[in-house]
Structure formats: structure tokens, C-alpha cells
Amino acid sequence: MMEAIIDLLNAIVLLLNFVVIPALSYGSQLALGALGITMVYGILRFANFAHGDTMAFGTMITILVTWWLQSKGIGLGPLPTALLALPVGILFTILILLITDKLVYQHYRRQKTPPITLLIVSLGVMFMMNGIVRFVIGPNDQRFIDGERFIIHARSFKAMTGLDEGFSLKVSQGLTIVIAIIMVLALFWFLQKTRTGKSMRAYSDNEELALLSGVNPDRVVLITWIIVAILATVAGTLYGLDKSFKPFTYLQLLLPMFAAAIVGGVGNPVGAILGGYVIAFSEVVVTYAYKKVFVYLLPASLEPSSLMQLLSTDYKFAVSFIILVLVLLIKPTGLMKGKVI
């Protein structure tokens, strides 16, 4: 009896360690990214393909500043130095987005260009940003995390509980989850409670009526880009801390982020967050090999011989895509009602 309970506990710890926590932190990163996409979608009314590379750009600046701080011996003790560099990264990203808007998007906004043309325009922006990032920092992997690695170490967890399975929580994972919660709360407070936030929601809801109410569209656009820059830089930096920084990976994040935004209901911030976690959990759940879990739960005679993996990890894109297609077929407005632009 006791053994069965311990086996069960081991299985739970195993799942927590390899499914729940990674999915939570990946989901938070996706959610922040999808929020940026959904803001552009809701207010500027186009699918911004440059968002992944905006994240890469912001992260790159953060990394450069982090390296400089590290070389000066400035740090945050147990926390990664990148947090200290983050504001600079955000500032530069705001700058580049505002310049892009001035030089590129503004023209098309005034012309009332259809969203699909703006999508192509954003592809052009994406490649320019991609070129800049690769030019400055190169196409290779960059690690920039420092400070403490773990909040909970697998070995100490085992020693403490006496279980066979270890549970670990990386600093990057803990930070991701905490920062994501803070950011989301701040964003919602801003959108729901402040005058500017409300005017942005109004603009997203009904542009003409917002203009008739005296909302200044240039200001709304300006603030949108600032928020997008903050979200993108934070999401990119957290992802880079958690995994590693490589320009190509950020490009590949586009699909899951778009999927998250659309699955949740495009233009709907709550939906973007929900979508982020739905996509992240599906990806991790479907590509995890459950063999060890079943070894704990089933009697020895029934032990599975295969890995018990539904899909190979290489197909994680397929997962976000399939969820995207399913949701669009069954509920075209997304899980939370999004807007049709």
C-alpha cells in the first residue's frame, strides 16, 4: 500500500517536473508574445510577422548590455544580470518600433491599406530586423544567464522527500512565471482602469466611434507600439534565459505565438494568455514520453516497451498548427470571443 502511494507520488513529481513546470514557463513566454501580436492585431489591424524578430532584437540589446554589465562586474547576485539590462533593451526596442512605424506603417495606415498587404509589409520589416540581429550578434547560440541556476534543486528535493524522482525549479522558470503574472496584471489594470487604456480598447472595438469620441489615433498607435515593445523584449529575454538565444528560434516562435493569439480569439488579451497556455501545454503533453510515468503506475507485468510518446518532439509545430486549424474550424472567433477585423 505504502509502495503504491510512493509510486503515485513519484509519477506526480515526474509529471510536474517534465510537463507542468516546463509548459507553464513556456506558456508564459508564448502568452507574452501572443499578447504583443494580439495588440497589433486589435489596434493596428494586421498580422505582424515581424513580432518574432522584434523579440529577437529586444533580447539582443538586453544581451549586449548584460555582457557589458558582466564585464564591469555589476550583477544582481542570485538573479540574472539580464534583468538589470532589460530596461535598456526595452528602450531600444521602443525606439526601433516607433521609427519603423514612422517610416513604414504610418503611410499604409493613412492609405487604409488592406490587412493582407500590411502583412506582406511586415514580412519586409521582419527581414530587415532579422538582418540587423544577425549582423550585430551573429546567427549562433548565445547564453547570457548568470547568478543562481536553481530555486529548488533536484538532488536536495530527493534528499528532502526521499522520493526517487527529483523535482527542480530553475530560476529562469520561476522568474518567467512571476514576471509574466506581473506583466499581465499591469497590462490589464492599464487597459481596464486607465483613461488611455480604455481609449485603446475603444479604438480596437470601433475605430470610427472612438475618433468621434475625440480619441487621438496617433497617440493610441504610439502607446500600442510602446506596450508591444515591452511585451516583446520581456518575452524574448525570458525565453532566452530559459532556453538560449538564437535568432532562428525566435523566428520559429512565430507560429505558436500566432496560434496562441488566434486560438484565444484575436484582439482579445485574455484570449492571448489562455491561448499561450493551451498551445504550450498541448505541445509538451503530446511530445512527452510517458514510459517512466507508466512504469510507476502500472504493475511490472504491464510495463510498456515503447517510449509511450504520442508524437516526436520534432512535430511540436504540428501540434500548434493542428490546434489552430481545429479551433478555426469549430469556433472561428477563438475560445474567447475575438474581433473580426
Binding site: 488592406p114 490587412p115 507560429l255 520534432d314 489552430l324 486549424v325
Partner: peptide, 26 residues
């Protein structure tokens, strides 16, 4: 995918090519 709005379709085609290439790789 073609019943979808133009920009959703674009995102869908991005997903499809990723999947096809993942299949061919694996």
C-alpha cells in the same frame, strides 16, 4: 484552410510548410 480570412490563411500556410518539412526530416 481556404474558408478562412486571408491573413489566417497565410498563417495556416506557414504552419503547413513547417509540418511538411518536419515530416520529410523525420
Amino acid at each position: 484552410a481556404l474558408g478562412l480570412r486571408a491573413d489566417y490563411l497565410t498563417i495556416a500556410t506557414l504552419g503547413i510548410s513547417e509540418i511538411i518539412i518536419a515530416l520529410l526530416k523525420n
